[in-house]
Design a protein around this nucleic acid. Sequence first.
DNA 1: CCGTTTCGTAACTTATCAAGTTTCAAATAA
DNA 2: TTATTTGAAACTTGATAAGTTACGAAACGG
Lengths: 153, 153
Amino acid sequence: MRHDGRLSRMLHVLLHMEEQKRPMTSDEIAGMLGTNPALVRRTLAGLREGGYVVSERGHGGGWMLGKPLSEMTLRDVYDAVGAPEIFALGLADDQPQCLVEQAVNMALRQSLDEAKALLLRRFAEIRVSDLRDDFAARAAALGIIPGMSCADA
Amino acid sequence: MRHDGRLSRMLHVLLHMEEQKRPMTSDEIAGMLGTNPALVRRTLAGLREGGYVVSERGHGGGWMLGKPLSEMTLRDVYDAVGAPEIFALGLADDQPQCLVEQAVNMALRQSLDEAKALLLRRFAEIRVSDLRDDFAARAAALGIIPGMSCADA
DNA sequence: CCGTTTCGTAACTTATCAAGTTTCAAATAA
DNA sequence: TTATTTGAAACTTGATAAGTTACGAAACGG
């Protein structure tokens, strides 16, 4: 099955965005993610609606944080990118009136719902700034000076 | 993302299989699932390897349980259908050497792993026969006589 | 033996949707 | 006005479970 990498990618972008004082263009970000600017704009649009980033058009424009990383949880970002389907496992719906299928789906749904609740609870506990802190700690342990660049733009 | 309905479907099949004394043909099962026999054979092949079902060729052949439903857990069936990918959420791997991406993925992976562990633990706790029992209880509550047919073949 | 049933399996097509792409209009600043 | 940059629509691509087609092999009945 195909994977949905929007949450992962947007977190990556947010962390890099924090270091930059100036706005980052969709082009720069696309280069960072190995993709193209239209996709970046499409995905960041969701974050803009939540106020997590702001965008400006024209010369000198681009994307900047709309609030501190300490005020966003992974859950917030997950919701902002459209709360994508979490599971690749699905329930059959071939025979909706079949009591057997209903029993199977009910049991599976219960387990899946528990797992989903746990996951979203964890996401809600983690601030995006925690990732930055973890990163900084690991970088320090490796003896790496700050400036956490990618194969940056 | 596409859903993987193999676990759900095979549980459905196993429960129906228990009621039948005679072998069920791939054709019958396909009719029950609203699909075709080749797909049924392909998917049941995994269950056969685990000994959960047995197949016989030729006239009067088909598929039958290889062991009682009380000796199979949802986890067993999940593994038997190939332990499909559980999550639709994926981790980016565009910049594997980027410490930021690593920090993001590490955090996401930890939460996903916890959720996966919980799910598989639940699956391991539920016997396939429990589903049949739940079903029977619900059917009784609804005043339905046994014989838990689908839009059966 | 022969014909029918049924599984075994390989090879191919389809459906789905995030990802990727192309393109142009609109807005902003120099 | 010209270059830059987002906004957004419309389209193609890629991955893969599902679905399909086809045929060989095995088992049984007559």
